[in-house]
Design a protein around this nucleic acid. Structure first.
Length: 824
DNA sequence: AGCACGCCGACT
DNA sequence: GTCGGCGTGCTC
């Protein structure tokens, strides 16, 4: 409390009023507003403090704001806060600190970072309305006399009804409404006013308690005659159990009327309280027995010890596909809940991870809240409210769930941590894995990163001691890893076999279908870039300077390196072997489906890709139809490689391992290895052993060899050496600047200017390289043309400072992407 | 981001 | 003379 006296909200001198002010970050999705704004705190909102969400006037609008400071200062030139959004602070100090870290690390405004922590874009629904202008109201007659009747009618309607929204006015005055409003606005007879409504609707319950002390109450209870059975039961219950909710009383056959009657006599008190149910912590069955393998037990013991220590600790759980990582997650979360703390489980994409959700739900029931992007605003609010109130203690969701409003986080689990979906591809471009580390560090929580194919950066960090490495090296039950056959497509061609499906794969599929088994085929879409490859020797045209595949550009029919921007003409013959079989690569989806139908006519084939899965239901339907055995072969893009666990799948095929390998991306090898490993992991999860065929023109490439052997350690040791040599992550850091323009020419010119300025600004930074500008892989998106500039440096702190000095952080046409996942 | 203000071209 | 285009600048 502020002491009344010398500095209190009293006039001091010359128009200075000392009072409470709040520093507020405006919740508007823009990087252009960086600072906090000051508002005076009116008497009735004096409880509002740091972390509260508030309603504020902002220019001509009313918007939501987040209070990040409170102090005493001159309030004379400030607007007052309008209202508080909630009955309690929304942000705790850990959330505020995490947001601050995000804002600094990813170079976004405080508002952009803070709004990640609230459900939906704003807790405030606002609509534009119109009302009379107080200052000119008396002049109404002057500017309305020579106007039609409608004008006056609308004016007097607003005078009578006060602020009215446009839809209501349209209903009343029809098509001319907009014209009339414009005129009145210009004549300064009316003004716009924002109608705001809080979307946050906390749930309340009616709580009945004794208004008198126990002795008095039991005296009344005994004095009541037998015929007042209802009242007697009610009093007895309240004496025995304390305050009870109206719903609970109704369940025990106490009539609402009985309650109200006793309230009138002053014996009872009825209050509305926000619904906060007891934590689920106590109700986890201790009797739950699961058989863990020795390795699982060891991993769990290590995690549990850290959880009990209540200090930050990060683990990398490296477990081969089918080794039972989920079981370890379940047990670790159970331990956290027994301690009364809460858990976040992140999954790459909610639609693809039904199994993990189901297992958590069947183990923890209503203690689990699932959040995903398809929740309606109301559902999302409800989900977050259940978390905030402590009614639920486990959140499962995609990357945004890392911002869930948990009061006491005990563990954050990131399943399939290598997945790129953890990186948000719009501002703020955070990586959920890094946010999780920051948040866990503040909360004294444990992080578990799980994967069969950890990101190279993560594994390196584990070697460096940032994460404790835990390994699961055997499959659960009797399942064994499938055997993988690598088919050399150059050899197929030499034998005159021109089909996109090799003999080996054809044979495997036929056998599988005959045996009544099922097969999954991955057709790696060629993506958005085309590379040029020699079908005779398998060589792909690379940039001599960057060791990156050249990309074919239809416009100008040239090959271009997306790293250095150098362009060359397309050669007629292969520069390596002189063959004429040099071609632009990329196989159509339908073509493969047709060939499959021709080569394996007895198979029932279902296709799953962007075209066939319009909605997430489409996807689930396809998977469940396949699981039910209504199809023999599931043919699809990346998504068939993930998550699902179908016992009858004994064969897996990969049409072209080269597609991922030849992306102009320094992570191409990593992506290829992970894809082969994950895909192979789909096979042989039941008792039957699985077989995998991987088709490639590069059978000797280390990513394909190690992928076929499912040998992460060998893959890693080769890959890390090359990363080290070229200064790519984890040895160097990348930062991507995307320049957007209305035309190709405009984007190009600005990109050149920015590149020049940045090159100059970072010249003094040791080993800092600037690459580009080069056209983005998808140059034109919705009439916006994009150019990329890549910065590579041992550390980015100084680089970021320079970009802020150049004011690149507040420009609408410039995107800064720290640690980009998509380098194209 | 919005929204007001302002300065120019094209029309009732 | 009005209407309405969208460039600039500000929001406590």
């Amino acid at each position: 409390m502020i002491k009344k006296g010398l500095f209190s909200p009293f006039f001091i001198r010359r128009g200075i009023f000392m009072g409470l002010i709040a520093q507020v970050i405006v919740n508007i999705a823009t990087s252009r507003i960086q600072k906090a704004f000051s508002y005076s705190i009116p008497e009735h909102l004096s409880h509002v403090d740091i972390g509260w969400r508030v309603v504020i006037p902002f220019g001509a609008r009313v918007v939501e704001g987040f209070v990040i400071g409170k102090m005493e200062a001159d309030t004379s030139k400030l607007k007052p806060l309008i209202d508080a959004m909630d009955e309690e602070p929304w942000f705790d100090s850990h959330m505020l600190q995490t947001a601050q870290w995000i804002s600094q690390y990813y170079i976004c405004s405080a508002g952009e970072a803070l709004r990640l922590f609230i459900p939906g874009k704003s807790g405030l629904k606002s609509a534009t309305g119109y009302c009379l202008r107080e200052d000119t109201a008396v002049l109404a007659e002057e500017f309305l006399t020579e106007k039609p009747e409608d004008y006056r009618r609308l004016y007097y309607y607003l005078q009578k009804h006060g602020t009215t929204g446009e839809p209501a006015l349209l209903r009343e005055f029809g098509v001319d409404t907009k014209k009339i409003l414009r005129y009145l606005l210009r004549q300064k007879g009316i003004r716009t006013a924002t109608i705001h409504r809080k979307t946050a609707k906390p749930r309340y319950e009616t709580l009945v308690s004794l208004a008198i002390d126990h002795q008095e109450a039991s005296a009344i209870l005994h004095a009541l005659p037998e015929r007042n059975g209802g009242q007697k039961r009610l009093l007895a219950a309240l004496l025995a159990e304390g305050p009870l909710s109206m719903t609970a009383l109704r369940d025990s056959k106490v009539l609402p009327d009985t309650v109200h009657r006793l309230e009138k006599t002053g014996v009872l008190q009825i209050r509305q309280v926000q619904l906060i149910r007891d934590s689920y912590a106590g109700s986890i069955s201790e009797a739950h027995v699961v058989q863990l393998t020795e390795e699982q037990g060891f991993a769990l013991a290590a995690i549990e010890q850290a959880v009990r220590g209540r200090e930050y600790h990060s683990f990398l759980l490296h477990g081969i596909t089918g080794s039972g990582k989920t079981q370890v997650y379940l047990e670790a979360v159970a331990t956290v809940r027994k301690l009364g703390r809460q858990a976040i489980v992140l999954v790459p994409e909610i639609a693809l991870t039904h199994q993990i959700v189901r297992r958590f739900k069947s183990r923890f029931g209503t203690d689990v809240v699932v959040v995903h992007s398809r929740l309606s605003a109301g559902e999302r609010f409800d989900a977050w409210q259940r978390i905030r109130s402590g009614e639920a203690g486990i959140v499962i969701g995609a990357r945004s769930a890392v911002f869930a409003p948990l009061a006491d986080i005990g563990i954050i689990i990131i399943d399939e941590e290598h997945e790129f979906t953890y990186k948000q591809e719009e501002a703020p471009r955070y990586h959920a894995r890094e946010v999780a580390q920051t948040r866990a560090c503040l909360a004294g929580a444990v992080v578990v990163l799980g994967s069969a194919t950890p990101a190279v950066e993560t594994y390196y960090e584990a070697q460096q001691g940032r994460h404790t490495l835990l390994s699961l090296t055997t499959r659960i039950g009797r399942a064994v890893l499938p055997t993988v056959e690598v088919v050399d497509m150059r050899e197929e061609l030499r034998r005159g076999q021109r089909s996109v499906i090799s003999e080996a794969l054809q044979e495997l599929l036929t056998q599988t279908v005959v045996q009544g088994g099922q097969a999954v085929i991955l057709l790696n879409r060629r993506g958005y870039s085309t590379f040029v490859m020699c079908r005779e020797c398998g060589q792909v045209l690379h940039c001599r300077h960057c060791a990156i595949s050249l990309v074919y550009h239809l416009a100008g029919r040239t090959l271009r390196c997306h790293y250095c921007g150098r362009g060359t003409a397309v050669p007629d013959v292969c520069p390596h072997c002189g063959s004429r079989y040099i071609k632009f690569f990329g196989t159509g989806t339908q073509k493969v489906e047709e060939e499959l139908g021709r080569l394996v006519p007895q198979a029932r084939i279902i296709r799953m890709d962007q075209d066939t899965t319009g909605s997430k239901m489409g996807h689930e339907k396809i998977i469940s139809a396949f699981t039910a055995g209504r199809y023999d072969i599931l043919l699809g893009t990346q998504m068939v490689a993930k998550g699902h666990d179908i016992e009858n799948v004994i064969a897996v095929g990969m049409i072209s391992a080269d597609t991922a390998l030849n992306l102009p991306d320094f992570r191409a090898a990593e992506k290829t290895f992970a894809l082969i490993t994950q895909l192979a992991g789909r096979a042989g999860r039941g008792h039957k052993s699985g077989k995998v065929v991987v088709q490639t023109y590069n059978p000797d490439h280390f990513a394909i060899r190690t992928g076929a052997d499912q040998d992460y350690n060998s893959f890693f040791s080769i890959e890390i050496a090359s990363r080290s040599e070229l200064g790519y992550p984890p040895f160097g850091k990348l930062l991507k600047i995307v320049i957007q323009g209305a035309t190709d020419e405009q984007a190009r010119r600005r990109a050149e200017a920015v590149a020049g300025a940045v090159r100059h600004a970072v010249a003094h930074i040791k080993d800092c390289e600037l690459i580009g500008p080069f056209p983005a892989a998808v140059v034109q998106v919705k009439d916006v043309f994009r150019m990329n500039i890549m910065i590579k440096a041992p550390a980015l702190t100084e680089v970021k400072k320079q970009l802020i000095v150049l004011e690149l952080d507040t420009r609408a046409d410039t995107v800064i992407d720290v640690d980009p996942v998509n380098v194209m």
